[in-house]
Design a protein around this nucleic acid. Structure first.
Lengths: 131, 131
DNA sequence: ACTTTAAGTTACGTTAACGTAAACGTCAAT
DNA sequence: ATTGACGTTTACGTTAACGTAACTTAAAGT
């Protein structure tokens, strides 16, 4: 059962962000840690949310977008219409993520090209870094 | 030989951005279109740069980062040390792009999950949208 | 009692990436 | 000659995502 709860600075150092950032996410409604008196107490669920937020950031999503995706996980969408709407948003996201994936692959290919030319000009071939 | 030159609004509508944005990229030194009098004239090379910039944006890169990558393409790095430095930066980029790729794949998987649950709750199975 | 140490609140500052508006030039068509 | 459709420069405005004080409170150790 791992650890169950975390303090703000634990999470901050684990994810290498500032406590200010974490509180900011809270202001924005992305996380709602419990309180012990005035201290914030983070659950593993909060930690999971943070993971999603930061993953989102790495792929260029805004906080609002991350929040949307997070919201997709919990099942508060009771009726059929809401579900259909959700499904629609999910599919849109999937499409744009697909584009992103291709963009990254294209960029990686170009960089591979650059890399090869560098190595060639340096007289190396395909070494992995042997000093 | 396609078309050779473009006006600013041609590019703007092609890439679906404003002319203001294009001029902004110029201010930032990302593109240097030729001039005919005071009019900007964009070459296919400029167009290619725009492509890179926008691809960069889609994967969450800043303009500075895009500029770095663009700079990697042209061979103005005469000496060995510069080449080694370049190679280093290229490899760093490749690593972070790799991470991004994995982040996207993870997100896609999660969304697939959400999608399946939606469909299940809606009583569908794996249709592609047949109205 | 005193001092770290960690947390909190409040509020203003900052950077990036444009948007928007004002005011003007240019050329073709009416 | 004027009206648009495009282009230009200059400059101020805006939003997101925090950073950076500045100050306070609470808990823990010596």
């Amino acid at each position: 059962m791992s650890k169950k709860t975390y303090t703000i600075s634990e999470l901050a150092s684990e994810f290498d962000i500032t406590t200010r950032a974490i509180r900011f996410y809270e202001e924005k409604g992305l996380i709602q840690p419990a309180r012990e008196g005035r201290k914030r107490v983070y659950s593993t669920a909060d930690r999971a949310r943070l993971t999603l937020i930061l993953r989102g950031k790495r792929i260029g999503m805004s906080l609002d977008e991350s929040m949307e995706i997070i919201a997709m996980y919990d099942p508060d969408h009771g009726n059929r219409d809401q579900l259909k709407e959700l499904l629609g948003r999910v599919q849109e996201r999937q499409l744009s993520l697909q584009t992103q994936l291709e963009d990254i692959q294209a960029t990686l290919e170009s960089l591979n090209d650059v890399e090869q030319r560098c190595r060639k000009a340096l007289g190396q071939h395909d070494q992995q870094g042997e000093l």
